[in-house]
Every structure is written in C-alpha cells, then in structure tokens.
Design a protein around this nucleic acid. Structure first.
Lengths: 115, 115
DNA sequence: ACTCTCTTTCGATGTTCGTCGTACAACGAA
DNA sequence: TTCGTTGTACGACGAACATCGAAAGAGAGT
C-alpha cells in the first residue's frame, strides 16, 4: 500500500458529526496518548517521531490510530514524514470546552508541554 | 463479611486528593457507567437496583466498584439497600467543570435522564 | 542502484476488561 | 426461624488492549 496521495486510502479521519464521546474518553484514558495530546496542545504540528514518549515505533503508530479514529488528531503526509495536529476546531465545534476541561484537569499547572 | 457498619471495612472511597483523571476518563468511557452517572445527575441518590441499565446484578456491582474507586460516586448503607450518589462536590473541587463538560458532551440535549 | 530514515503492517504475547452464573451474606417481614 | 429481597464475592470466559520485534514500503540523498 503506497503512501503517496495518488494511491493511498488517505488515512481515515471521521467527520466531526461522527465523533463519539465514549471513544474520545477511551482514547484519552491512556498515559501515552494523553501525553501525545498534551504535547500537541503546545505545538501546532509535529512529526511522529518527535513526541516525548518512551514506546516502540509500532506502538506509537497504534496510539496514533486510536487518536485519529476518535477524531482527536489529524495526520497529513509530507514526503517521508507524517505530521500530526490536534483537531481543535472540529472538537470545539462538536463538544465545546471538552478537550480543554480534560487536558487542564490532567495537567492544570503545566499546560505547555516541553519541547 | 457482614454488611453492617460495625464490622464492614466500609467501602473504599478515595480522597479527592487521590483522584486520577485517567481513572475517571476510563470509568466514564463505558456506556453502562456513563448511563449510571447521567442518571445520578438527575437524582441526588438512588438505590443500586433502580438504574435503567440492562446487565446482570453482578455486572452492576462491578461497574459501581469502578466508579467508586475512581471517585465518581459515593455509596452508603441503609439496611438492606445501598444508596449511590455522585461526588459532585469533591469532583468539582478537584477538577472544576470536568464532569459537566463530559456528561454534557455525551447528552447535551438530554441532561435529565428519565426516572 | 544502493542506502538511510521514517513509519506502517503483521504476528505474537501477556494483561485488562465486560459479562455472566452461582453461591453467599445481611436485612426486614411474616 | 423461615422466606423473599437486595446486593456482594468468586471464578470463568471471550474480547479488547498495550506492547513488542521483525519485515517491508516509500521517500530522499548519495
């Protein structure tokens, strides 16, 4: 399955209408994924390999898929890299204040993750 | 293990200081438990067997334990019954706005569960 | 073409989770 | 004491989950 735009099924990103709160909660109820989201709040976009988490690459791919399918992140291709960003606009349109409430509850005094 | 106050280890309820957001998210990321919490938002206190969920009694006990150990509910004894209530005060003191944001996101137009 | 880097897919492993049925304990009433 | 109600504890089962290593694809550079 080639990665370029011409042939790829283009990473499944659910519409905001299809977001499920239960999926979002489940996605965030994991320390690795919560760290990813927190890191993304501080930087608009990041390459996959640059997150301060300590897991194998394949595990990281798994966590990105969970976050992506829940609607929390959006990923785009750029040559060899995959860039990841929070779907803040869609999230806030669908569930106003939800992400802020959750992430702030997790780290109220450390909103800007390092790096 | 008798149930009366004189001998029981008195249902473990964590202090608000010990609440863990990840545990709370995990507890709420289940449709049965979310229904319990939503129902509890409409009624201050309820007996265990009066929730509009369709699971076996032992399964319900399991879900109550998950919610209790995450700090979401408080349970007290009254003769034969066990009464369950939301720990709204503790939750709001520790994580202001969190529970509202989550439960409203789940059912924004149906805040008062039936019953 | 070859190689290096980045990321994914696949298969496997051990753990956690949701569910149930059965057995049991406590209470209240007959 | 006996019975019915209420809820718990235990053990079991299948499904889902987090994790890893090995293999492979795609792009960029030499």
């Amino acid at each position: 399955m080639p990665r370029s735009n011409s042939r790829r099924p283009a990473l499944a990103h659910p519409d905001a209408d299809a977001f499920d709160v239960l999926d979002i909660l489940h996605a965030l109820a994991d320390p690795t994924r919560m760290t990813i989201v927190r890191t993304l709040r501080a930087a608009p976009e990041r390459a996959c390999g640059t997150f301060p988490v300590d897991v194998a690459p394949s595990t990281l791919t798994h966590h990105f898929r969970v976050l992506r399918e829940a609607g929390l992140i959006r990923q785009r291709e750029d040559g060899n890299r995959r860039w990841t960003a929070l779907r803040l606009d869609d999230l806030d349109a669908r569930f106003p204040g939800l992400l802020d409430a959750i992430v702030n509850a997790y780290a109220p005094e450390d909103e800007a993750a390092e790096g």
